[in-house]
Amino acid sequence: MKGFLRQLKEGILDHNPTLVQLLGMCPTLATTTSVKNAIGMGLAATVVLIFSNLFISLLRKFIPKEARIAGFIVIISGFVTMVELLMKAFFYSLYQSLGIFIPLIVVNCIILARAEAYASKNKPLPSAVDGLAMGLGFTFALLLVSTVREIVGNGTFLGVSIFGKGYAPALLFVMPAGAFLTLGFVIAGVQKVRAVREERARAQARANEETKEATV
């Protein structure tokens, strides 16, 4: 249980694929015009991450090392096709909103990176949990960026008006330039928080060391 929680924390906060590892920038910039799209894209990528990680881990001894990337891509593209079919059948409006970015999940570098760095070297259950943690981390990043962009650029959150009719939306934020600006500020904020936490941890460690020396 502790391992599971640690993996979740690492995926969402410490090693967040988007905000810390800076992977998956393209879908982050493109699909964060609204919170609804961001949640849809995040969950679709999470499902693909969980199942591709699980499947790759199960077949890790069978997939030949010489052609492992080709094998990974076949598995990932298969699961993306399945997610696309399911969305087209049961979540059509979301399927229409995300458009070309659903098939493009195949080339989302977070998925291939986790397949190569984790799933191909670990057992199925931890690999599936890693997929869940990284997927939730990706969704969290999309949610942060899309919340800022939808509120500032459209005056709404999940389609519900926040500032009333009098609000003149800053359209720049729903345009590509706004995506870069928002993502830049969000990453800067996250890096600041991480730096403060690391500094506090170092200070705490120094204080513990000094206490230990004084006791001796």
Binding site: E66, V74, G78
Partner: peptide, 12 residues
Amino acid sequence: VTWRLLAVCLVV
């Protein structure tokens, strides 16, 4: 390599 990749493709 070929038959293993083919097997993965068939399963997917």
